[in-house]
């Protein structure tokens, strides 16, 4: 009897259903995007085939995919780590730039053998990212100022800073381009084809964080503080200290992402070095439900989508369109997450 059916909201969504909701959100977004493409004259099915063959048809395609995977994995990890303590690090984009900036500074101006310079660049990238998130971190820890906006505004400052140095003081005066720095000589060695060691390092970092969070006392305290700060205080956990540590770690990871991009992939600092990696990192973390291991997989998915956008640029599709589709996925995911709490039950009268 239909009248015996009721819609009820449960306090927690079943993980399986939440996963299903995510998959449905992605498929629905792609469907909507295809419809829009169809209306505007492009042929979505053909484009899809083109993307698949370009990506998986050659090792070159897969290497390109992996090169996109690295920064997405790292920024996604950065956001996911921040979320463990309940912080919204929307500034991964800026921390990425700051890390790239610092790494380039070392790479261009500190003489020395690669074996020395690369680790220095790594440290510089990490520190650059940490410095970039420092002010929002302290504001959050000591003044309770919401970090969402402070981290985000610094994105614009970082982008301007990189633009300024790469077209100004650090400009490559010898080469053809006048909007990028000279090539940074130190390079991260290749791991497979064009893909550099940043990929396995990134994966190791993700797994490392996941292990520490699940299997250490510190990890327990961080998870508790992120989920309910009052309960953590009641348990005597130094919440403020953990907020600072975790947020700095989050910034550090994003900064390292920037260093990887410079030393491993593009080798020059220039204005558009981040393909919105910081913002897409938010998407990666959300899709992975902030799981440090899960970001490996959602970053792969995001890399596929971003790669598709780049491939389709020849067909007139811009990366902005990819951004819009990503937004649509995020929107539908948010709705799906909430709807996953509901279930239909039969009421026994």
């Amino acid at each position: 009897m239909l009248s015996g059916l009721r819609l009820q909201r449960l306090p927690s969504a079943h993980p399986g259903i939440a996963l299903g909701a995510r998959v449905a959100a992605i498929l629905l977004a792609l469907l909507l995007a295809s419809i829009v493409l169809e209306i505007s004259g492009a042929a979505p099915l053909e484009l899809g085939v083109q993307v698949i063959s370009a990506t998986f048809g050659s090792t070159y395609g897969i290497e390109d995919l992996c090169l996109l995977l690295i920064p997405l994995l790292m920024t996604g990890l950065a956001v996911a780590v921040g979320q463990q303590i309940g912080a919204w690090n929307i500034g991964a984009e800026g921390q990425f730039y700051a890390g790239a900036f610092s790494a380039t500074a070392i790479g261009l101006f500190v003489p020395g053998p690669e074996i020395l310079i690369l680790p220095l660049m790594f440290i510089a990238g990490a520190v650059g990212g940490m410095i970039w998130i420092l002010v929002p971190t302290l504001a959050r820890a000591y003044a309770g100022v919401n970090e969402l906006i402070t981290t985000l505004l610094l994105n614009f400052v970082a982008a301007l800073m990189v633009y300024y140095v790469s077209t100004g003081p650090w400009r490559d005066r010898v080469g053809m381009s006048n909007s990028a720095t000279p090539r940074v000589k130190a390079e991260i060695p290749e791991f497979w084809g064009l893909v550099h060691w940043g990929l396995p390092l990134g994966v190791l970092m993700a797994i490392g964080f996941a292990l520490v969070l699940s299997y250490s006392k510190w990890g327990y305290e961080v998870r508790l503080s992120g989920s309910n700060p009052s309960a953590a205080k009641y348990a005597g956990i130094p919440v403020r200290r953990h907020i600072i540590t975790v947020m700095l770690l989050s910034g550090m990871v994003a900064g390292i992402a920037g260093m990887f991009e410079i030393a491993g992939t593009v080798h020059r600092l220039q204005g558009g070095i981040s393909n919105n990696f910081g913002y897409l990192g938010i998407m990666v973390a959300v899709l992975a439900r902030n799981s440090c291991v899960g970001v490996i997989f959602s970053a792969a998915l995001m890399a596929l989508i971003l790669n598709a956008g780049i491939i389709l640029q020849t067909q007139g599709l811009t990366t902005s369109a990819v951004l819009a589709i990503t937004g649509l996925i995020l929107f539908l995911t948010a709705i799906g997450d909430e709807l996953a709490h509901y279930r239909i039950t039969r009421i026994k009268i």
Binding site: W88, I90, L148, Y279, I282, V286, S320, A321, V322, L323, A324, I325, T326, G327, L328, L330, F331, T333, A334, I335, D337
Partner: peptide, 14 residues
């Protein structure tokens, strides 16, 4: 928060 971020991405991209 998520819906707002999504709206920004969608609006800016579109």
């Amino acid at each position: 928060v998520l819906c707002g971020l999504a709206l920004t991405l969608m609006g800016t991209g579109l």
